[in-house]
Amino acid sequence: MDEELNRLIRDAKRGDKDAFTKLISLYKAPVYRHAFGMLGDKMEAEDAAQEAFIKAYSFISRLENEYSYSAWMIRIVSNVCMDRLKKRRKERALVSESIAEARSPSTRDEHLGLTVEEAMRKLTPEHRQVILLHDVQGYRYEEIADLIGIPMGTVKSRLNAGRLALRNELKKGDE
């Protein structure tokens, strides 16, 4: 399988569109899953995943290490999502508070228990990002540090703070 995957990556680097289509089939699930976790919306996650693969197609010839394709792809989609969230934050700042609150999912009855997805949406993007990379994508601390360009100590503290915040959100819903 690894040899087959490396052959696909080499062919895609040479501009073979069929090989790139096969790579999309292999990686669309983790890429889409990460985008959905970060953005919390299926349509937007699909757009972000599409944008990530288009960027990957444009830059795949520059990929130096074929073995790191998976992490490279997750790094791209992660950056795309962070950019979208920054843009969303700016747009929301322009909308008046009352309208923003009316549209926000937080207007649901706070006494009802939150699902994991709903509680995750309440975290900061940075906390969500490390939780998804570790608990869903299965990367280790060192790999996450390399992937998002932060020190390993920051990964450790960010993941801990993120989990405690998530626990608080889930507990709040249970009370």
Binding site: S25, A29, E117, I131
Partner: peptide, 18 residues
């Protein structure tokens, strides 16, 4: 968390659209 997100499936027609 792992259960909630690992069950999320990507759309089927994604390759063609991309």
């Amino acid at each position: 968390v792992a259960d909630a997100y690992r069950s999320v499936e990507a759309p089927q027609e994604m390759e063609q659209q991309i």
